[in-house]
Design a protein around this nucleic acid. Structure first.
Lengths: 224, 224
DNA sequence: ACAAATTTAGGACGCTTGACAACTTTTATC
DNA sequence: GATAAAAGTTGTCAAGCGTCCTAAATTTGT
């Protein structure tokens, strides 16, 4: 596994979403993240097939050999990319979790709103379907993606717990699981379904209200 | 566009989900659907890259030349596969729509329950991430996928309308859109996230209750 | 029995791929 | 300014790809 080292500046969502490209990157110490940005761009724009070593190298304005110098294999590149994307989102989520002492209901709404709006408007969203498809066949990608979602879910579980201390751990998890899955589907559709995109602001409102109400009122159904 | 013709038996979800394979398919008149089943299998199991003309032919126990006899190009194969998958799901959905005159709330719950459980338990679910990834780069796939979802959403819009005749057409659409997106995310997660799978029955209960409550109580927020 | 549809068995074309080896240039450090 | 490490260049390799082709054998419908 190629380690990201030295004074490598960790890639932000913005970097990944709108990579600089004009006239080739390269040079100096940021080559690595330039490669990752170019890879992501190719992956999102033209799919995994297009993310070949040669095309990535070309997109960076460098030679193939130099790319293999930084990433020995294509798999290495995928792993590096995954790490970068995950790191970017973790920064995103970390910023969301730590919010001043507003009531949990508001924070739930805030978090969901941020995730829905923030992620939707970033190009990086589109990387997830690709990652899902990849994860279907690559255990490494599978585990990393799963891990990412679990981590993204943690603050949700926490807030649900604050709102409903009467619920069991399992119940909180179930609610958070449903909410995150629901958000995932929503942002997913937003990127792919044209009619959805236009109505997104209202859908977001619906989603958030639905989530808050759900957590507020949830009771396990009586066994019949 | 290669037309599916003659006494070609339309592929069912079951066929696609559990294709026969022992000792190669071939023979007789069902070659075409055998090819499609093998293609789907490769697509789902190993990804789009693996769905090469040569591997599909090999998986069917036939020669490359014979495959190109039925599907002149790889694109033809993709289109044929897309048609088959969509047709299978339309049969599925059609069966769901036609239900006796129970109250709309029950029918909403019923439909959502069917979609969530029925589709989740089928292997074909896993084809959708692949299709999404493909649709990102192929306009043909994109339009077909979008069309399919729109069609699947229609009965939902209808039922929402029955439950809430006071809502505008737009409002009904928004609610149905959110519900279907939410379900998509849920079934999606179910296929990919291990912790999700085990808790799926409860998540389904949560989802359905959440959807019914949402439609029952939704009011547009006042403009502030 | 006959014609059409299907299948086999090959091969060939031009192209892209991931991987790698040998080489040169740049860069940092003493 | 020497020197070693890092970065970048160039060319090659076998393998796989989609597409196209021919010629013969087989199955199928009628």
């Amino acid at each position: 596994m190629t380690e990201i080292k030295g004074n490598f500046r960790s890639i932000t969502v913005a970097d990944l979403a709108f990579p600089p490209r004009e006239g080739g990157y390269a040079k100096g110490h940021e080559t690595r993240e330039a490669i990752l940005a170019a890879s992501l761009n190719l992956l999102v724009e033209e799919g995994y097939q297009a993310m070949s070593m040669r095309r990535v190298a070309a997109a960076c304005g460098m030679k193939l050999g130099n790319l293999t110098y930084h990433f020995a294999s294509r798999e290495d590149l995928v792993r590096g990319l995954l790490d970068a994307v995950i790191r970017a989102y973790e920064i995103e989520f970390a910023a969301i979790v730590h919010m001043p002492g507003t009531p949990p209901e508001e924070r739930l709404a805030e978090i969901c709103g941020l995730i829905l709006e923030d992620i939707r408007t970033k190009k990086t969203t589109r990387v997830f379907p690709e990652l899902w498809a990849l994860s279907n066949h690559d255990p490494f990608v599978f585990e990393r993606v799963q891990e990412t979602y679990a981590r993204a879910r943690a603050p949700l579980v926490e807030i649900v717990g604050e709102m409903r201390p009467d619920l069991s751990e399992d119940q909180r998890h179930d609610l958070a699981l449903f909410i995150s899955a629901s958000m995932e589907g929503t942002t997913m559709f937003a990127g792919y379904e044209k009619p959805f995109e236009a109505r997104m602001p209202m859908i977001e409102t619906i989603a958030i209200k639905s989530f808050v109400d759900l957590v507020r009122n949830w009771e396990d159904p009586e066994p019949n």
